Amino acid sequence: MRIAVIDAQGGGLGKVIVERIKQRMPQAEILGLGTNVIATNAMLKAGADRAATGENAIVFNIRNVDVIIGGIGIIAANGMMGEITPKIAEAVSSSEAVKVLIPIGKCNIIIPGSENYTTNELIDKAIWHITQCLPE
């Protein structure tokens, strides 16, 4: 299974996601895609198998993955303080890959009910959903 982890800003969310996927699914190939080099490096240090940075790298690489995971802002044009460009948001939204979006409220997108969970709990729930995509 090929999993793209998309993150922006400081890469803290992507770092935790990569670490947890590696713990739960060590056989998965993880591609860390950052909107900036800080986010990309954080995911590499966390154990991503490969990584790339920037709009074109994200748009190009998500064409060949089974799952895309990140904060919900990755489907919002200008999300994550403007680091998610309209091209990135469109590419993620249009991708045939399963999209697992963590409802973090930093992009003016509110998912009622998600506030009842910590970020760590939301990440664990997201990774559980990815494990359900594995072939038996």
Rank of each mutant, 00 (worst) to 15 (best):
M1T: 06
M1H: 09
A4F: 00
A4W: 04
A4H: 02
V5L: 01
V5H: 04
I6P: 02
D7K: 07
A8S: 12
G10S: 11
G10H: 04
G11D: 08
G12F: 01
L13Q: 08
L13R: 00
G14E: 09
V16E: 11
V16Y: 02
V16T: 10
V18N: 01
V18D: 03
E19G: 01
R20G: 02
I21H: 07
I21E: 05
R24V: 11
R24L: 14
M25A: 13
P26C: 04
Q27A: 06
A28G: 09
A28D: 10
E29S: 11
I30N: 14
L31I: 12
L31Y: 05
G32Y: 13
G32W: 06
G32V: 09
L33I: 15
L33F: 07
L33E: 02
G34S: 13
N36M: 03
N36L: 05
A39W: 08
T40R: 13
N41Q: 14
N41F: 12
N41S: 14
N41H: 15
A42H: 07
K45I: 04
K45D: 11
D49A: 12
R50V: 13
R50L: 15
A51Q: 08
A51D: 13
A52M: 08
A52N: 07
T53H: 13
G54D: 09
N56W: 00
A57P: 05
A57N: 04
V59C: 07
F60K: 07
F60N: 03
N61P: 09
I62N: 03
I62W: 10
I62S: 00
I62M: 07
D66A: 01
I69Y: 08
G71C: 01
G71T: 02
I74C: 04
I74L: 00
I74V: 00
I75W: 00
A77F: 04
N78M: 03
G79T: 00
G79I: 04
M80Q: 00
M81H: 10
G82I: 02
I84S: 07
T85S: 01
P86L: 08
P86H: 12
K87R: 12
I88G: 13
A89L: 03
A89E: 00
E90T: 10
E90R: 10
A91S: 06
V92N: 06
V92T: 11
S94I: 03
S94N: 00
S95L: 10
S95D: 05
A97D: 02
K99D: 12
K99R: 15
V100H: 03
V100N: 09
L101K: 05
P103I: 02
P103S: 10
I104G: 11
K106Q: 14
N108R: 14
N108K: 12
I109L: 15
I110M: 10
I111F: 12
P112I: 15
P112K: 14
G113N: 14
S114M: 10
E115H: 12
E115F: 07
Y117Q: 06
T118C: 13
T119Y: 03
T119D: 08
E121Y: 10
I123K: 05
I123F: 04
I123A: 05
K125P: 02
K125A: 15
A126H: 15
I127T: 09
W128N: 10
H129G: 05
I130N: 03
I130E: 12
I130T: 05
T131D: 10
Q132N: 06
Q132E: 12
Q132T: 13
C133D: 06
L134C: 03
P135H: 07
